[in-house]
Amino acid sequence: MHQRAHDALLQEIEAEVRDTHDRTGRASLSERVIQALRQVPREAFVPAHLQDAAYQNMPLPIGHRQTISQPYIVALMTELLEPQADQVVLEVGTGSGYQAAVLDGLVKHVYSVEVVPALAEEATERLQRLGYHHVSVRQGDGSLGWPEHAPYDAIIVTAAGPQVPPALVEQLKPGGVLVMPVGGRHFEQNLRVIRKGADGQLTERDVLPVVFVPLTHSPTDLA
């Protein structure tokens, strides 16, 4: 049952990528990204009572006012990151661990930061249990990044803020790419791609209107 639903979802994602190529600049997903999406069982990353909805192309709640992102958005953000096998990537916003699991098969290592202690603990256990050994999770303020392992070849942020946190720009390697939804809590957000040139100069491009949970700085922000 899950396999048929998974295959149907991948077809839907690829169709949506084609339909939005005029805005995203991506007419198709790379074969590496498609294979990574195919290999990750999304049902393992959603709450038990939402198992039947795991392969619907929509975000789902995972508790603590957080969500697992829409599969199309996960696919698009992964594609825009242009992941390579020798890269080290920073993820801000581990959530259930689904995005990190997708990246696990595409890059050398993922360092993922989650602000909610319970989610960080659950994601760590889940990723280890499912065999994703190229991901390290820590609980903390994702807007500060994970400086001990910087600089990063790429950075992906799965929560929206009014601007890209300066610490993340600092931790991005020259030549690297950062993908993040930028905007406010109550008005339009845009998925933004930021590239850092060899000279440290940034170029930015808004790709697509999106809706993400806000980037928070401490568990108390979720109260």
Rank of each mutant, 00 (worst) to 15 (best):
L130T: 04
G25H: 05
L103C: 04
V211Q: 12
Q51N: 13
R205H: 10
G25A: 12
V116F: 04
L90I: 02
T24V: 08
L172C: 11
D153A: 15
Q87I: 05
Q139R: 10
A75N: 07
E125N: 11
Y152M: 15
G161Y: 09
V210T: 09
V210L: 01
R18C: 09
Q51H: 08
P151E: 11
R23A: 10
Q128K: 14
Q39E: 14
L106Q: 02
Q70H: 14
Q163I: 02
H134L: 10
A120D: 00
V102Q: 03
T203G: 09
V157A: 01
Y111L: 13
E14L: 03
L76R: 10
M77G: 07
G161I: 00
G183P: 10
L29A: 05
V115A: 06
Q87W: 13
K173E: 14
R192A: 04
L81W: 10
H134V: 12
T220L: 08
D141C: 07
E114H: 04
A123E: 05
V89M: 04
P166T: 13
E31T: 12
I62S: 02
L202M: 14
R23F: 15
R4T: 14
G184A: 10
P83F: 08
E148R: 15
L172W: 10
L202R: 11
S143W: 08
E82R: 08
I13Q: 00
L144Q: 15
D153G: 14
Q201W: 04
L168S: 02
E31H: 10
E188A: 05
D86M: 11
H21T: 07
S69D: 04
N57L: 12
V46M: 02
F45G: 02
A8N: 14
F187R: 15
V40Q: 00
V210H: 04
A123C: 12
I194L: 15
P117Q: 09
E170S: 15
V210G: 01
A118F: 10
P162M: 13
F212M: 06
L90D: 01
Q201F: 07
Q56L: 15
A123L: 00
L215S: 02
G25V: 06
F187W: 12
